[in-house]
Amino acid sequence: MLIRDAETIWNTLKGIICVYKPAEVSVQKLRTIIINKICTELNETEVRPPIDYVAIEGDPMKSLSVSVRPNYADHPLVVGPRYQEEDLPLSWSNNLGWNTTGVLIFGLRSGTRSAKFIRENRPTRAYRIKGVLGEATENGLKGGKVVEKSTWRHVKQFNMDRLLSAMQASHQKKMFEMCGVDMQSQLGYELAIKGLIRPLDGKIPVVYGLKCIEFDGPNFTIEIQCVNEYETYLTSLIHEIGLKLHSTAHCTAIQCIRHSYFTLEHALLMKHWNLQNIITNLEQCNKILSENENLVKQESVALI
């Protein structure tokens, strides 16, 4: 059943929403769009009418009269719409780059604390990245100027799988070295069973998993699980893969497919960004967050 009372809707807008970010749109722009959508539709529902002006007039020594008049100082045509964009706090939990698409988490009103909680606990994120062998561009992306071409037909999927496996093992070894712990020691085992090891410095990218899920030369797709990543790092990773395969490569698409416990299944497409869908999504995301809040805390037990 649709709720037509703006005040009731406003009181439910507290928590986390999950949206799908398209490419070539900034997170700040999406934030503005969502706030504008919510406020516009709220003002189209049954909002609070202007409060009447109560006037007490007359001589206090004799008699007073009380009259009720329209209060123009509280009229929307004077003070503006009941719900304005600056009244709605909205913050993001993960900041995706300009060319990156996928899962993006926002916190609404009191949900900004939940968004901050997720952000500060640095849960793992998963990406699906597409690349092309044989060409290197100046910015590592498909729109960039081609600066180098090379052969790629010698690269097979087993070469890709073996390289990604070695790179994953190298990242895991590096994490333990930063802790000053031998991976084969008892201390290393005890550290590993406590949970994922994260660097204290939130600017150090750490890769936990690398896998090639599709190879159709020269095109390939890999999935990566990581923390502290950023768009430039992911594009440089594709470039590094090309070099280590004795070729070159550039990135054609970056898609965030999971952020913490939120996946593409939970993300609202831009065409579905309306008040009713946002409320439904908010209820779904709040339920997921409450069910997994303790697990999110446990993920960050081991820090470098």
Rank of each mutant, 00 (worst) to 15 (best):
I118Y: 02
T252E: 00
G102V: 04
T124C: 10
K203P: 03
G188E: 08
E148M: 13
C226K: 03
Y83Q: 03
I105Y: 00
N159F: 08
E44A: 13
H239W: 11
D182E: 15
A6E: 04
D201R: 07
S290Y: 08
R119G: 02
H259M: 11
K14H: 15
S67D: 12
L237Q: 03
W152S: 08
D87P: 00
K156L: 14
S300W: 08
I204V: 15
V78G: 02
E293W: 06
D52H: 12
L64M: 14
R258D: 01
K142M: 01
T248L: 07
N159P: 01
G140C: 06
K156A: 12
A73R: 13
N99H: 11
M160R: 00
S236D: 14
I278D: 00
E231G: 04
A169L: 14
E177M: 12
V206D: 02
D161C: 06
R82N: 04
L245S: 04
T221N: 02
A192C: 09
S300E: 08
I118M: 14
M175E: 03
Y208D: 06
K156E: 14
G188C: 07
E86F: 14
D182C: 01
T12M: 14
T235R: 14
C179M: 15
E138F: 11
N294L: 13
I304P: 01
T32W: 09
P199F: 11
K244Y: 11
G80H: 09
C18G: 06
S91F: 10
V301D: 00
E223P: 04
E293K: 12
V147R: 08
G180D: 05
I304G: 06
S247E: 05
L191T: 07
K149P: 02
D201V: 05
Q184Y: 12
K149D: 00
I279C: 06
L104Q: 04
A126T: 13
Q225K: 13
K271M: 08
A169S: 13
D161A: 10
R258T: 03
P199C: 07
I238V: 15
E135H: 01
V296S: 00
V207W: 04
E240Y: 09
H259F: 15
S26P: 01
I238G: 00
C39L: 08
P22W: 02
D216Y: 09
Q84H: 09
G180N: 09
R119N: 12
R69I: 10
G107L: 06
I17Q: 01
I33F: 09
H266A: 08
V147E: 09
Q168R: 15
P60S: 03
Q255V: 09
T263K: 10
S185R: 07
G58R: 06
R122D: 07
C256V: 07
T124Q: 12
V207D: 00
R153V: 11
N99T: 10
R69Y: 12
N121D: 03
V301R: 14
I51P: 05
K130Y: 08
N36D: 15
L90I: 10
I16V: 11
K145I: 13
N95W: 02
L2E: 15
E57N: 11
W98L: 13
T40D: 10
F215G: 06
V103P: 01
E214V: 03
F220D: 00
Q276L: 05
F158Q: 12
I222N: 04
E148I: 04
G217R: 05
S247V: 02
A302F: 11
E229W: 07
E24A: 08
F106R: 00
L210Y: 09
